[in-house]
Computed example of a mutant assay.
Amino acid sequence: MTVLQGFIAAGTQLRLGLPGKGGVVLPVDSIEPPVVRLKNGDVVRVSSENAREINERIEKILFLGDLLISFGDFLYSSKPLSPSGYVEEWWSQELKETVSTKFKGDYAAVAETTKISLERIKRLVEKPFSCKPTAKEALALSLTLNIPLHPAYTFFWENLDSIKEFLTLRRWMLDSEVETEEDRETVRRVSGVFNAEVKEMLERICVPHKIVGDKIVISGDDAHVFAFCLGRHVSEPLSELNSSFNGSVLEFIRKVCGVEVRVKAPTVVGARMGRPEKAKKRAMKPPVHVLFPVGMAGGAQRNLVVAASKGEPVFVELVKRKCPA
């Protein structure tokens, strides 16, 4: 909502392309966030921490973020359930199933196999939204347990038009300056010469990067996964594989790096603002005369008595508005 310059707010009625007539929307910070291009050319993944900081510098929205629609909306409107992108709870269920089938539920054996702590493995299964693996952990889990790459490190590879574009990105990566950690395998930074074609493809697959002088710089976990998926660890040329391959880009990536990468956004939903004046009055039950600014200290009912009974200071956010006219 912030990247749309406040055009929509919590409670705005949207008319959706599917599954039904529309509904009221609310912000969610646990699903896939927007990806934007700033005026200086940087591509940034938006979060609640940086949204206000970069808001005035956004030049283009590359991806507006995921939209969470309940199954009941499809059921109510008798519409076929549209395919979902690969998301965290889906990944955690596949991890859980692998632990159950291949290791007979023995999480200790999984921890020993993947070199990831037992507590960490359990948290990844039980709390997929709040606990996310690092790039090294995600790749270790995919390589050892044969599960798809974690959604947090899945770029929009399906947006590439052909394997030729994939190979163009790979050549650029191999020609770039690659900084690694002491193990020489974990990539921390990819810095390559600015190329308009490469820049456009990076934006299309939503890889966060910065423009530093005449360089395109990808850093951190994004750099490690980006280089891995492009086959930095593969020494053999891919020309022979490409000439005999008839599959998709995602299938080609699996052939190259040995890890399955799922589709990030198989369904795109169009939306427009509804007619606010047609919305019915939403009355509180029971009806109230005054709302006291006590925040959550007064519970869901914003009860002044409950807030006072706690005997603690109450902090609220107040806005001072002035008519510019």
Rank of each mutant, 00 (worst) to 15 (best):
S142N: 07
E260A: 10
E94N: 05
S48P: 01
I211A: 08
D66K: 03
R37T: 01
M201W: 12
R272W: 14
G220N: 14
E94H: 12
G295K: 02
P33W: 00
V87A: 05
P293H: 10
E88L: 10
M273G: 08
L16E: 06
R321W: 11
G258I: 01
V288W: 12
R232P: 06
P19G: 08
E53D: 13
R272S: 14
V28F: 09
L202Y: 07
H224T: 04
P324A: 01
S78I: 12
V87G: 02
K136S: 14
K136C: 09
V225N: 02
F156V: 03
S117N: 14
R120I: 10
V125M: 14
S239D: 15
R15H: 14
K264W: 00
F166N: 00
W157G: 00
K310G: 15
L169M: 07
R184I: 04
R204D: 08
G20M: 12
G192D: 12
E203G: 00
V294H: 10
P80K: 13
S309D: 09
E240G: 00
S191V: 00
Q5N: 15
K104T: 12
C229M: 10
P293C: 05
E158I: 09
E137W: 05
R171Y: 02
V36I: 10
I211E: 08
L81Y: 15
F63P: 00
R184T: 09
L118A: 11
S142A: 15
T113V: 10
G231W: 06
S309G: 07
D221A: 15
A227K: 01
T2P: 05
N242L: 05
D106P: 08
L149R: 03
K96S: 15
N195M: 01
E181V: 13
F71R: 15
Q301H: 08
G213P: 06
L62Q: 05
